[in-house]
Structure formats: C-alpha cells, structure tokens
C-alpha cells in the first residue's frame, strides 16, 4: 500500500500521457504479435526507453547520495565504441560483454573516487568524464561510425526472448536486480542516510565513501549496458552521437520519479516510470505527425505540467481541495495532509 501511494503520481502521469497520445493517434495502444514478437507503439516505447531507463537506475542511486552523474552519456559512447571494436575484431560475445561492463565499472569507480575520496563536487567531477569521455570514444572509433555485422551482438539491441524485445528484458532485469539488492540489503537505507546527512551518517559509523563509490559504480555499469544496447541497435558505434544528452533525460526521469536532487529518499521503480513517461512523450510526438519544430516545445510543456502537478505546493493544494469536497459529502473525514504519508503502511 505504502509503495503504491509513493508511485501514484508517476503512474497517474504515465496514464495521462498515454491517454493524451491516444486521443491524437488512434490505435496507439494496440499490441499484436508479429513474427513471434510483441509489436506496437507501446512496445516501441519500452524498447526506446531502454537507454534512459538503464541510466535512470544508476542515476537514482547517485542522486540519492546527493550527487549527480553527468558522464553517463559519454560512458555509453565509450563502452559502445569498445564493444563495437571488439565485435568487429570477432571476439566472442562473452569477452565483449565482460570487457564493456568492466570499462563502464571503471568509469563509475573513477567518478566515485573523485567525489568520495577527493571530495570534488559531483557536478564538476563527472563533468570531467562527460567532456573527456566522448573524446576517448572518438579515439577508439577513429572518428568514424564503426560498423559491424554480428548477429549475436546485434541480438542485444534488436533480438527478442519469449516475444519480449531484448532491450526491454535488459532494463527490466537490471531494475529488478538493482532494486532487490538495494532494498533487500541495507544499501538503500544507508545510501538514503548518507544523502540526507552525510556527516551525521559518518558519525554513526556509516561508511559513506564506500556507499558513494558504489552508487557511481552501479551508474557506470548501467551506462555500459545502455551503451551496448544503442550500439547493437544500429549495428555500429557512433562516438559523436551515442548517448548524447541522455544524461539530462536520465536526470529528468529521476526527477519525474520524485527523487529529490538534494538527496535522500529514492525509488528506482518511480524513476523507471519516469523514463517511460519521457519516452511516451517522444514516441507520441513522433506518431502525432506534427512538424518537428514543435517537438521540444510540446515535450517541455508536458514536463512542466507533470512536474507542476507533483510539486509539494500543488500537492498540498490538491489534497486541501479533496479534503474540502470530501468533508462536504462525508462529514468528519478530514485528515491533516501532514499525517497522510506517515499513516500509510
């Protein structure tokens, strides 16, 4: 119940966005099975949301520690370039996967070390790799789009298992694994404690440095997965464009998911729904047939509406309205808004 209450604003926003798109594009919601796999715009949304969804998983943890990871887009480009190089070199798939994930992990550890050990501001620390990373990726690919023809690796981007496209499976599994590890262990609580008050947490013996490094490391791994998916998807590594600006979409997904940029309480599920909301807007705009000049305006307007409805001020006003109307119909059912969250269990 408590969990559902936490996710309610995001679920409502997603339903509203899908509803709005259906009004503009009839048949938007239909799903069929074609060539043994699920087919339809909803499926496209889940597939195309994969990179941002994966990034949002790691970004949620980083933001929960009161950090931010601007480098994830560049890390996608690096891991994509390296994966493509290895695939073009006919390395076995296992080697490609392990090396790429290893590079992503190394990038995450680098960020984490700058933030936790050298105490650089996260925005500056990760900006370093954001700028340098794309250069590294270009060095790896030699400045060109490095293409390959390898059905096994391409399967990651465009294959399907039991009718479900691989990118969807990957972000679902990654979200599930990270979510379970974080919530079934004490990592989640300790990360939240560090994000809310790092000093107080350190004084009770929480190893804040380890936790911060761990958050960035997971973010690096997620970026590596996202990088491989986009590379496999277009059968090539585009160092200039892979993951470009996706760090901002990932941050937006986390914010739509209701995790505060000032750290603390987080929800990976809510961030994933946030990623789906963003992609639903993207796909909806493409399907609508409007001229591309409107793309960014429509997206921005929709996001403003979503974030406004979620803002504490509006939420309080809304529940005030609800209380007013509620008490009109059923007397004495007024509940102070401050207690609502505490009571839900």
């Amino acid at each position: 119940m408590r969990k559902l209450k936490r996710l309610a604003p995001q679920i409502v926003a997603l339903v509203l966005v899908l509803f709005a798109v259906t009004l503009a594009v009839p048949g938007f919601l239909s799903i069929s099975v074609q060539n043994g796999r699920l087919y339809g715009s909803l499926v496209d949304i889940c597939v195309r949301a994969a990179p941002v969804a994966l990034l949002a998983i790691g970004m949620t943890l980083v933001i929960a520690t009161r950090g931010i990871d601007l480098s994830v887009g560049a890390v996608m480009a690096i891991t994509g370039a390296i994966a493509a190089t290895l695939v073009a070199d006919n390395q076995p798939l296992v080697v490609v996967l392990l090396v790429s994930l290893g590079i992503g992990l190394a990038c995450g550890l680098w960020n984490g070390a700058l933030v936790a050990l050298l105490d650089l501001q996260p925005i500056i620390a990760t900006l370093i790799l954001m700028v340098a990373g794309r250069g590294i990726a270009q060095l790896v690919t030699g400045g060109t789009i490095l293409t390959f023809n390898d059905p096994a690796f391409s399967f990651i981007g465009s294959g399907a298992l039991f009718g479900v496209p691989m990118p969807v499976l990957i972000w679902l599994v990654a979200g599930l694994v990270v979510g379970l590890v974080v919530r079934r262990s004490a990592l989640g609580l300790l990360i939240e404690a560090v994000g809310v008050n790092r000093r107080a947490s350190s004084l009770v013996g929480v190893r804040s440095r380890f936790l911060i490094v761990a958050a960035y490391a997971i973010s690096g791994l997620c970026a590596a997965l996202a990088g491989m998916i986009v590379t496999a998807d277009i059968h090539g590594a585009d160092a200039n464009n892979a993951g470009l600006w996706l760090e901002l979409d990932a941050i937006l997904a986390v914010v739509i998911g209701g995790t505060s940029l000032s750290g603390g309480r987080f929800s990976i599920t809510a961030s994933l729904i946030g990623a789906l909301i963003i992609q639903s807007l993207n796909t909806g705009i493409l399907m609508s047939g409007w001229p591309p000049e409107f793309n960014l305006i429509v997206k921005a307007a929709a996001i403003v509406v979503i974030l406004t409805l979620q803002s504490p001020t509006v939420a309080t006003a809304l529940s005030g309205l609800r209380a007013t109307f509620g008490s009109a119909s059923r007397s004495n059912s007024h509940e102070p808004t401050g207690k609502a969250g505490a009571r839900a269990k």
Partner: peptide
Amino acid sequence: TDGIVADLSVRENIVLALQARRGWA
C-alpha cells in the same frame, strides 16, 4: 547537523548505528 538524519523515520534513525556496524550486506 551531526545527529539526526532528518528525512528518515524514527525507526530508521534508531537502527542506523546498529545497521552501520553490521554492514550493508
């Protein structure tokens, strides 16, 4: 500034030191 972890619940604040000593795993 040094004591409470403001946004966490009373329960989480109470178990925090014990949890930190036991480790995240």
